[in-house]
Design a protein around this nucleic acid. Structure first.
Lengths: 161, 161
DNA sequence: TTCCTTGCAAAGGCTTTGCACACCG
DNA sequence: CGGTGTGCAAAGCCTTTGCAAGGAA
Protein backbone atom coordinates (compact mmCIF):
# COMPACT_ATOMS: atom_id res chain seq x y z
CA UNK A 1 0.00 0.00 0.00
CA UNK A 2 1.86 3.04 -1.28
CA UNK A 3 -1.08 5.21 -0.40
CA UNK A 4 0.77 6.85 2.47
CA UNK A 5 3.48 8.10 0.12
CA UNK A 6 0.87 9.93 -1.88
CA UNK A 7 -0.40 11.58 1.27
CA UNK A 8 3.06 12.50 2.46
CA UNK A 9 3.90 13.97 -0.92
CA UNK A 10 0.65 15.93 -0.90
CA UNK A 11 1.43 17.39 2.50
CA UNK A 12 4.88 18.38 1.35
CA UNK A 13 3.56 20.03 -1.75
CA UNK A 14 1.20 22.06 0.36
CA UNK A 15 4.08 23.47 2.32
CA UNK A 16 4.14 21.19 5.33
CA UNK A 17 7.41 19.99 6.76
CA UNK A 18 7.72 16.27 7.01
CA UNK A 19 9.00 14.75 10.18
CA UNK A 20 9.44 11.13 11.22
CA UNK A 21 6.44 11.57 13.53
CA UNK A 22 4.18 12.79 10.77
CA UNK A 23 5.29 10.05 8.45
CA UNK A 24 4.56 7.38 11.01
CA UNK A 25 1.18 8.82 11.86
CA UNK A 26 0.15 9.10 8.23
CA UNK A 27 1.44 5.62 7.56
CA UNK A 28 -0.45 4.16 10.49
CA UNK A 29 -3.73 5.65 9.38
CA UNK A 30 -3.32 4.99 5.67
CA UNK A 31 -2.03 1.50 6.21
CA UNK A 32 -4.87 0.49 8.49
CA UNK A 33 -7.43 1.18 5.79
CA UNK A 34 -10.06 1.83 8.41
CA UNK A 35 -11.33 4.45 10.82
CA UNK A 36 -9.19 5.08 13.86
CA UNK A 37 -9.31 7.21 16.95
CA UNK A 38 -6.33 9.34 17.85
CA UNK A 39 -5.49 6.90 20.63
CA UNK A 40 -5.57 3.97 18.22
CA UNK A 41 -3.21 5.75 15.87
CA UNK A 42 -0.89 6.44 18.77
CA UNK A 43 -1.05 2.79 19.72
CA UNK A 44 0.05 1.68 16.28
CA UNK A 45 2.84 4.22 16.10
CA UNK A 46 4.03 3.30 19.58
CA UNK A 47 4.65 -0.23 18.38
CA UNK A 48 7.52 1.23 16.41
CA UNK A 49 8.80 3.92 18.68
CA UNK A 50 8.09 5.79 21.85
CA UNK A 51 9.06 9.08 20.31
CA UNK A 52 5.55 10.28 19.56
CA UNK A 53 3.20 12.21 21.74
CA UNK A 54 -0.59 12.14 21.70
CA UNK A 55 -0.62 15.89 21.11
CA UNK A 56 1.37 15.41 17.95
CA UNK A 57 -1.06 12.76 16.79
CA UNK A 58 -3.96 15.14 17.23
CA UNK A 59 -2.09 17.93 15.48
CA UNK A 60 -1.12 15.73 12.55
CA UNK A 61 -4.57 14.26 12.12
CA UNK A 62 -6.09 17.72 12.14
CA UNK A 63 -3.49 18.76 9.62
CA UNK A 64 -4.56 15.97 7.29
CA UNK A 65 -8.19 16.93 7.66
CA UNK A 66 -7.49 20.62 7.04
CA UNK A 67 -5.66 19.71 3.86
CA UNK A 68 -8.47 17.51 2.68
CA UNK A 69 -6.42 14.33 2.93
CA UNK A 70 -8.43 12.72 5.70
CA UNK A 71 -11.87 12.89 7.21
CA UNK A 72 -12.81 13.37 10.79
CA UNK A 73 -16.07 11.75 11.81
CA UNK A 74 -17.77 12.36 15.10
CA UNK A 75 -19.54 9.13 15.96
CA UNK A 76 -21.10 10.65 19.05
CA UNK A 77 -20.59 9.52 22.63
CA UNK A 78 -17.27 11.28 22.47
CA UNK A 79 -15.93 8.94 19.83
CA UNK A 80 -14.12 10.69 17.00
CA UNK A 81 -12.48 8.71 14.24
CA UNK A 82 -10.21 9.64 11.39
CA UNK A 83 -9.69 8.00 8.03
CA UNK A 84 -7.68 8.86 4.96
CA UNK A 85 -9.62 9.72 1.84
CA UNK A 86 -9.27 6.87 -0.59
CA UNK A 87 -12.61 5.77 -1.90
CA UNK A 88 -15.49 8.12 -2.35
CA UNK A 89 -17.92 9.23 0.34
CA UNK A 90 -19.49 6.52 2.40
CA UNK A 91 -21.91 6.14 5.26
CA UNK A 92 -20.70 5.01 8.65
CA UNK A 93 -22.93 2.43 10.23
CA UNK A 94 -22.15 2.59 13.92
CA UNK A 95 -23.37 -0.15 16.17
CA UNK A 96 -24.44 1.52 19.37
CA UNK A 97 -23.85 -1.66 21.30
CA UNK A 98 -20.46 -3.00 20.23
CA UNK A 99 -19.15 0.18 18.62
CA UNK A 100 -18.22 -1.56 15.40
CA UNK A 101 -18.17 0.70 12.36
CA UNK A 102 -19.27 -0.65 9.02
CA UNK A 103 -19.17 1.31 5.80
CA UNK A 104 -22.02 1.53 3.36
CA UNK A 105 -22.40 2.97 -0.09
CA UNK A 106 -23.25 6.66 0.04
CA UNK A 107 -25.34 6.24 -3.09
CA UNK A 108 -28.08 4.94 -0.83
CA UNK A 109 -28.52 8.51 0.35
CA UNK A 110 -29.21 10.04 -3.02
CA UNK A 111 -32.97 10.12 -2.77
CA UNK A 112 -32.89 11.19 0.86
CA UNK A 113 -30.61 14.15 0.27
CA UNK A 114 -32.67 15.18 -2.71
CA UNK A 115 -35.83 15.08 -0.64
CA UNK A 116 -34.24 17.07 2.18
CA UNK A 117 -33.10 19.70 -0.24
CA UNK A 118 -36.50 20.02 -1.85
CA UNK A 119 -38.66 19.82 1.23
CA UNK A 120 -36.44 21.39 3.88
CA UNK A 121 -33.90 23.40 1.88
CA UNK A 122 -31.20 21.51 3.71
CA UNK A 123 -27.96 20.55 2.01
CA UNK A 124 -27.09 17.28 3.61
CA UNK A 125 -23.41 16.52 3.92
CA UNK A 126 -23.43 12.85 3.00
CA UNK A 127 -19.67 12.42 3.30
CA UNK A 128 -19.62 12.87 7.06
CA UNK A 129 -22.63 10.81 7.90
CA UNK A 130 -22.81 8.44 10.81
CA UNK A 131 -25.89 6.30 11.28
CA UNK A 132 -26.62 4.64 14.57
CA UNK A 133 -28.18 1.30 15.07
CA UNK A 134 -27.36 -2.29 15.71
CA UNK A 135 -25.22 -4.65 13.73
CA UNK A 136 -26.67 -8.05 12.99
CA UNK A 137 -25.06 -9.79 15.92
CA UNK A 138 -26.00 -7.16 18.47
CA UNK A 139 -29.52 -6.91 17.17
CA UNK A 140 -30.00 -10.57 17.97
CA UNK A 141 -28.38 -10.20 21.35
CA UNK A 142 -30.56 -7.22 22.30
CA UNK A 143 -33.58 -9.08 21.13
CA UNK A 144 -32.72 -11.91 23.46
CA UNK A 145 -32.11 -9.52 26.35
CA UNK A 146 -35.44 -7.81 25.81
CA UNK A 147 -37.22 -11.12 26.01
CA UNK A 148 -35.39 -12.09 29.18
CA UNK A 149 -36.22 -8.78 30.88
CA UNK A 150 -39.82 -9.08 29.86
CA UNK A 151 -40.03 -12.44 31.57
CA UNK A 152 -38.36 -11.01 34.68
CA UNK A 153 -40.83 -8.13 34.89
CA UNK A 154 -43.75 -10.47 34.54
CA UNK A 155 -42.31 -12.72 37.22
CA UNK A 156 -41.36 -10.24 39.95
CA UNK A 157 -43.34 -7.08 40.65
CA UNK A 158 -40.72 -4.57 39.55
CA UNK A 159 -37.23 -5.39 38.39
CA UNK A 160 -34.53 -3.07 39.70
CA UNK A 161 -31.98 -1.59 37.31
CA UNK B 1 -49.05 23.64 27.06
CA UNK B 2 -50.03 21.07 29.67
CA UNK B 3 -47.57 18.64 28.21
CA UNK B 4 -45.28 18.94 31.20
CA UNK B 5 -48.02 17.77 33.57
CA UNK B 6 -48.31 14.60 31.56
CA UNK B 7 -44.62 14.00 31.89
CA UNK B 8 -44.59 14.75 35.59
CA UNK B 9 -47.49 12.40 36.15
CA UNK B 10 -45.76 9.72 34.14
CA UNK B 11 -42.63 10.02 36.23
CA UNK B 12 -44.65 9.79 39.41
CA UNK B 13 -46.48 6.73 38.20
CA UNK B 14 -43.19 5.07 37.48
CA UNK B 15 -42.13 5.50 41.06
CA UNK B 16 -40.06 8.67 40.86
CA UNK B 17 -40.35 11.27 43.58
CA UNK B 18 -41.25 14.68 42.35
CA UNK B 19 -39.28 17.63 43.57
CA UNK B 20 -39.50 21.31 42.65
CA UNK B 21 -36.24 20.92 40.78
CA UNK B 22 -37.52 18.07 38.67
CA UNK B 23 -40.73 19.90 37.93
CA UNK B 24 -38.91 22.98 36.78
CA UNK B 25 -36.52 21.03 34.63
CA UNK B 26 -39.30 19.05 32.98
CA UNK B 27 -41.31 22.19 32.48
CA UNK B 28 -38.40 24.04 30.92
CA UNK B 29 -37.78 21.29 28.41
CA UNK B 30 -41.42 20.54 27.62
CA UNK B 31 -42.35 24.18 27.38
CA UNK B 32 -39.54 25.07 25.02
CA UNK B 33 -40.81 22.62 22.45
CA UNK B 34 -37.34 22.27 21.03
CA UNK B 35 -34.03 20.54 21.59
CA UNK B 36 -31.93 21.85 24.43
CA UNK B 37 -28.55 21.17 25.94
CA UNK B 38 -28.29 20.59 29.67
CA UNK B 39 -26.77 24.05 30.04
CA UNK B 40 -29.67 25.62 28.18
CA UNK B 41 -32.17 23.89 30.43
CA UNK B 42 -30.26 25.14 33.44
CA UNK B 43 -30.31 28.62 31.99
CA UNK B 44 -34.09 28.58 31.68
CA UNK B 45 -34.60 27.18 35.16
CA UNK B 46 -32.18 29.70 36.61
CA UNK B 47 -34.43 32.49 35.39
CA UNK B 48 -36.84 31.34 38.05
CA UNK B 49 -34.56 30.29 40.84
CA UNK B 50 -30.97 29.68 41.71
CA UNK B 51 -31.81 26.51 43.60
CA UNK B 52 -30.87 24.09 40.88
CA UNK B 53 -27.54 22.54 40.14
CA UNK B 54 -26.21 21.41 36.80
CA UNK B 55 -25.72 17.91 38.19
CA UNK B 56 -29.41 17.73 38.98
CA UNK B 57 -30.24 18.84 35.46
CA UNK B 58 -28.15 16.05 34.03
CA UNK B 59 -29.66 13.53 36.40
CA UNK B 60 -33.21 14.59 35.65
CA UNK B 61 -32.71 14.64 31.91
CA UNK B 62 -31.21 11.18 32.03
CA UNK B 63 -34.13 10.10 34.15
CA UNK B 64 -36.56 11.28 31.49
CA UNK B 65 -34.62 9.47 28.81
CA UNK B 66 -34.46 6.26 30.82
CA UNK B 67 -38.20 6.35 31.29
CA UNK B 68 -38.79 6.95 27.62
CA UNK B 69 -40.16 10.42 28.13
CA UNK B 70 -37.40 12.27 26.37
CA UNK B 71 -34.74 11.65 23.79
CA UNK B 72 -31.07 12.36 24.01
CA UNK B 73 -29.38 13.15 20.73
CA UNK B 74 -25.67 13.43 20.25
CA UNK B 75 -25.15 16.01 17.56
CA UNK B 76 -21.42 15.45 17.55
CA UNK B 77 -18.74 18.04 18.35
CA UNK B 78 -19.62 17.43 21.95
CA UNK B 79 -23.12 18.81 21.55
CA UNK B 80 -25.79 16.71 23.21
CA UNK B 81 -29.38 17.83 23.16
CA UNK B 82 -32.51 16.60 24.88
CA UNK B 83 -36.13 16.89 23.84
CA UNK B 84 -39.38 15.56 25.23
CA UNK B 85 -41.17 12.97 23.17
CA UNK B 86 -44.27 14.56 21.69
CA UNK B 87 -44.49 13.73 18.05
CA UNK B 88 -43.09 10.55 16.60
CA UNK B 89 -39.51 9.97 15.60
CA UNK B 90 -37.90 12.65 13.51
CA UNK B 91 -34.60 13.40 11.86
CA UNK B 92 -32.39 16.16 13.17
CA UNK B 93 -30.96 18.35 10.46
CA UNK B 94 -27.96 20.01 12.03
CA UNK B 95 -26.37 22.92 10.26
CA UNK B 96 -22.63 22.55 10.72
CA UNK B 97 -22.13 26.25 10.27
CA UNK B 98 -24.72 27.97 12.47
CA UNK B 99 -25.63 24.98 14.63
CA UNK B 100 -29.34 25.39 14.02
CA UNK B 101 -31.34 22.18 14.37
CA UNK B 102 -34.28 21.58 12.10
CA UNK B 103 -36.56 18.59 12.32
CA UNK B 104 -37.61 16.48 9.38
CA UNK B 105 -40.07 13.69 8.91
CA UNK B 106 -38.50 10.34 9.78
CA UNK B 107 -40.64 8.71 7.10
CA UNK B 108 -38.06 9.92 4.61
CA UNK B 109 -35.74 7.27 6.00
CA UNK B 110 -37.98 4.31 5.33
CA UNK B 111 -36.37 3.19 2.11
CA UNK B 112 -32.87 3.86 3.41
CA UNK B 113 -33.33 1.79 6.56
CA UNK B 114 -34.87 -0.99 4.56
CA UNK B 115 -31.93 -1.00 2.17
CA UNK B 116 -29.42 -1.02 5.03
CA UNK B 117 -31.16 -3.93 6.61
CA UNK B 118 -31.24 -5.92 3.41
CA UNK B 119 -27.81 -5.11 2.09
CA UNK B 120 -25.81 -4.65 5.29
CA UNK B 121 -27.86 -6.42 7.95
CA UNK B 122 -27.82 -3.20 9.91
CA UNK B 123 -30.79 -2.10 12.00
CA UNK B 124 -30.69 1.64 11.70
CA UNK B 125 -32.01 3.53 14.66
CA UNK B 126 -33.93 6.26 12.86
CA UNK B 127 -35.21 7.91 16.00
CA UNK B 128 -31.80 9.12 17.10
CA UNK B 129 -30.57 10.30 13.78
CA UNK B 130 -28.67 13.52 13.25
CA UNK B 131 -27.77 14.59 9.75
CA UNK B 132 -25.12 17.19 9.11
CA UNK B 133 -25.14 19.75 6.41
CA UNK B 134 -25.99 23.34 5.73
CA UNK B 135 -29.25 25.17 6.19
CA UNK B 136 -30.41 27.30 3.32
CA UNK B 137 -28.94 30.53 4.63
CA UNK B 138 -25.55 29.08 5.46
CA UNK B 139 -25.37 27.23 2.18
CA UNK B 140 -25.64 30.54 0.37
CA UNK B 141 -23.11 32.16 2.67
CA UNK B 142 -20.61 29.35 2.18
CA UNK B 143 -21.13 29.52 -1.53
CA UNK B 144 -20.28 33.19 -1.48
CA UNK B 145 -17.18 32.54 0.61
CA UNK B 146 -15.98 29.83 -1.72
CA UNK B 147 -16.26 32.19 -4.66
CA UNK B 148 -14.36 34.91 -2.84
CA UNK B 149 -11.53 32.55 -1.89
CA UNK B 150 -11.32 31.27 -5.41
CA UNK B 151 -10.83 34.80 -6.68
CA UNK B 152 -8.19 35.42 -4.02
CA UNK B 153 -6.28 32.30 -5.00
CA UNK B 154 -6.38 33.24 -8.64
CA UNK B 155 -5.24 36.77 -7.82
CA UNK B 156 -2.40 36.14 -5.37
CA UNK B 157 -0.06 33.17 -5.60
CA UNK B 158 -1.27 31.29 -2.54
CA UNK B 159 -3.85 32.47 -0.07
CA UNK B 160 -3.02 31.80 3.56
CA UNK B 161 -5.57 30.24 5.92
C1' DT C 1 -39.45 7.35 59.38
C1' DT C 2 -37.28 5.73 55.24
C1' DC C 3 -34.47 6.27 51.59
C1' DC C 4 -34.64 8.89 47.33
C1' DT C 5 -32.71 13.52 45.75
C1' DT C 6 -29.97 17.34 45.96
C1' DG C 7 -25.85 20.42 46.09
C1' DC C 8 -21.19 20.75 46.20
C1' DA C 9 -16.85 19.72 44.84
C1' DA C 10 -13.78 16.69 43.00
C1' DA C 11 -12.68 13.38 39.61
C1' DG C 12 -12.79 11.72 34.77
C1' DG C 13 -12.00 11.37 29.88
C1' DC C 14 -10.72 13.51 25.78
C1' DT C 15 -8.64 17.37 23.45
C1' DT C 16 -6.23 21.69 23.14
C1' DT C 17 -2.67 24.97 24.34
C1' DG C 18 1.70 27.48 26.07
C1' DC C 19 6.31 27.12 26.16
C1' DA C 20 11.09 26.04 25.40
C1' DC C 21 13.81 23.08 22.70
C1' DA C 22 14.65 20.39 18.40
C1' DC C 23 15.16 20.06 13.71
C1' DC C 24 13.50 20.46 8.64
C1' DG C 25 14.54 22.89 4.61
C1' DC D 1 19.94 30.08 9.96
C1' DG D 2 14.74 31.00 10.36
C1' DG D 3 10.66 29.33 11.34
C1' DT D 4 7.98 25.18 11.93
C1' DG D 5 7.12 21.02 14.65
C1' DT D 6 7.59 18.46 19.00
C1' DG D 7 7.18 16.90 23.86
C1' DC D 8 5.61 17.87 28.17
C1' DA D 9 2.52 19.34 31.36
C1' DA D 10 -1.22 22.03 32.49
C1' DA D 11 -5.59 23.82 31.43
C1' DG D 12 -10.32 23.32 29.39
C1' DC D 13 -14.67 21.49 28.53
C1' DC D 14 -18.49 18.67 29.46
C1' DT D 15 -20.25 15.12 32.31
C1' DT D 16 -20.34 11.94 36.10
C1' DT D 17 -19.76 10.57 40.90
C1' DG D 18 -19.14 10.36 46.20
C1' DC D 19 -20.95 12.00 50.17
C1' DA D 20 -23.51 14.27 53.73
C1' DA D 21 -27.65 16.88 54.36
C1' DG D 22 -32.46 17.73 52.88
C1' DG D 23 -37.03 16.51 51.86
C1' DA D 24 -40.91 13.54 49.44
C1' DA D 25 -44.17 9.89 50.70
Amino acid sequence: MAHCHTLIAALRQQGCRMTPQREMIVEALAHSGRHMTAEEVLGVVRQKTRAVNIATVYRTLDLLVEHGLATRTDLGEGRVVYATVRHGPHIHLVCRRCGQVQEADAALLASLTAALQEQYHFWCDAGHLALYGLCEECEQTEHRIRNTEYVKREGGHHAAE
